[in-house]
Nucleic acid binder design. Sequence first.
DNA 1: ATGGCCAACACAGTTGGA
Length: 258
Amino acid sequence: MQLATWNVNSLKVRLPQVLTWLAENPVDALCLQETKLEDVNFPQHEIEEAGYRVAFAGQKTYNGVAILSKHEIHDIQVNLPNLDDPQKRLIAATINDVRVVCAYFPNGQSLDSDKYQYKLRWLEALQSWIKAQLATYHSLALLGDYNIAPEDRDVHDPKAWAGQVLVSPPERAAFEQLLGMGMKDAFRAFEQPDKAFTWWDYRMNGFKRNLGLRIDHILLSNSLAERCLQCVIDVAPRRNERPSDHTPVIVTLSDSAR
DNA sequence: ATGGCCAACACAGTTGGA
């Protein structure tokens, strides 16, 4: 079974790229972030014609998340139940034997911004909710754009980024606390090349110069981590014309024992 | 030189992203 996550930065613009990518990478489930579409405008039929079922929760202009799946999607939940928040940043569903959580973490903008305080509140709500979910769901995967670079090796220039949003100690502590609940960073479960990133600024030829960050992640509950065979970043879509600034991350799991 | 790019909204220039 393969699961993937991709912040597409507008599904309206990126739908052709998503369909092309799925044809070349027929993963079992793909989590999308920043769809930036109201539900009435979601391209459900185009995706279904490509052989994928879909669950989505969107809004105008900002945010928006979706799960595309080759298999039946059960028990869909939208947003964190313990946070009063109109922003559509989370959708969860059960696919086969796996609880799939697709999340678009807040950016935070800057450390002195109200948006940073919102990010910290959101992270706290996520933590307590995930902790409870792990008690319920044996096999859980938390995929998405975390907007957190967990370690300095996930940052192209740690000195330049020091003291900024995405690398601040409270954000990194939140990431560590998710690991402490019994989750594994699938990417770091394997030997990986240096300077492996999932996002590059559109400006300054960021991608060509590999000035990036690793901020898109797949965390697996312990029992799922035991089934994890591989985790890779697919940089190919970042070379497309009109690319998203993020690129997909894919995890491969062995079939569960039956 | 602390911006450069991109998308949405709206139809110019602002906001947000990371």
